[in-house]
């Protein structure tokens, strides 16, 4: 049986509106609560990671639980200042080098998207320091460089480049696994061999850093392109011979 719209329906409409308001209010307060809990949780976890690392490490099941908490809350379980000091390190007791290594790899891999696998060492130090939640200056460039050296056996090709002017870069991408190169080649083929950073930025949505890193890699590491440092328009252009059309 079909009922027409009556007063009751109007009421119901109002009620539902009120409920809608209530609902959104509720969810807002809930989100607030969750936020505060999250913050509290994070503080506590990073505090424990810093101060009680050894006890955490000595208990396998708890260690696992701790790791799971850290992963979902967003705390680095390796946070904290240097443990063990010089001698522990010399005797191979400290995991410091490896901890730092894991964090370096993490930063490098995660920022590849943005910078094409080449990161300024200052930025790397800064990021690692923040992961460990320590003051700047606790971790030095020296530490990072030494830690990169311990990664040598992996054969992942991490290297510290001196780009002049006291500026150092860390390159984490090797030629073989560098997918950006193929993109550059494809773009170069479209435009007839001459490619500049701006093309990559505009057409691929790359960041400036990534575009520059990819082109520099091609030029210096792979020797796949030529540099024209007197380009009329951009000042600096790269020519990719394999993509050039030769007027024969």
């Amino acid at each position: 049986m079909h009922r027409g719209v009556g007063l009751a329906a109007f009421d119901r409409e109002q009620v539902s509106q009120r409920f809608a308001e209530l609902s959104s209010e509720l969810s807002k307060t809930q989100v607030d609560h969750l936020q505060s809990q999250l913050t509290q949780f994070q503080t506590a976890l990073s505090h424990f990671a810093k101060t009680h690392r050894d006890s955490i490490r000595s208990d396998p099941t708890f260690r696992h639980a701790f790791q799971q908490m850290c992963a979902s809350i967003g705390v680095d379980p390796l946070a904290g200042p240097r443990k063990g000091g010089f001698w522990a390190e010399m005797l191979g007791l400290g995991d410091w080098q490896y901890e730092l290594g894991v964090q370096i790899v993490d930063v490098c891999v995660s920022t590849r998207e943005r910078n094409g696998g080449v990161i300024e060492i200052g930025e790397l130090v800064d990021k690692v320091s923040r992961l460990r939640d320590v003051e700047s200056g606790v971790i030095t460039e020296e530490d990072v460089i030494r830690s990169i050296r311990t990664l040598q056996p992996l054969g992942a090709g991490y290297e510290v480049l001196d780009v002049g002017g006291g500026k150092k870069m860390v390159r984490s991408v090797v030629k073989e696994l560098d997918a950006d190169q193929a993109v550059v080649l494809a773009e170069a083929q479209l435009v007839g061999g001459r490619i500049v950073e701006e093309i990559l930025e505009n057409r691929r949505g790359w960041t400036k850093d990534r575009a520059r890193a990819a082109l520099e890699n091609m030029l210096l590491r792979d020797g796949l392109c030529w540099l024209d440092s007197q380009d009329e328009h951009y000042g600096k252009a790269y020519w990719v011979p394999s993509a050039m059309h030769w007027g024969e």
Binding site: R57, R63, Q67, Y98, V102, D106, C108, L154, Y158
Partner: peptide, 16 residues
């Protein structure tokens, strides 16, 4: 690459 393997594995292991 082995760097990602190593880093990822250790991340999964947490502090050990």
């Amino acid at each position: 690459g082995l760097d990602e393997v190593w880093g990822g594995w250790n991340r999964a292991r947490g502090v050990a």
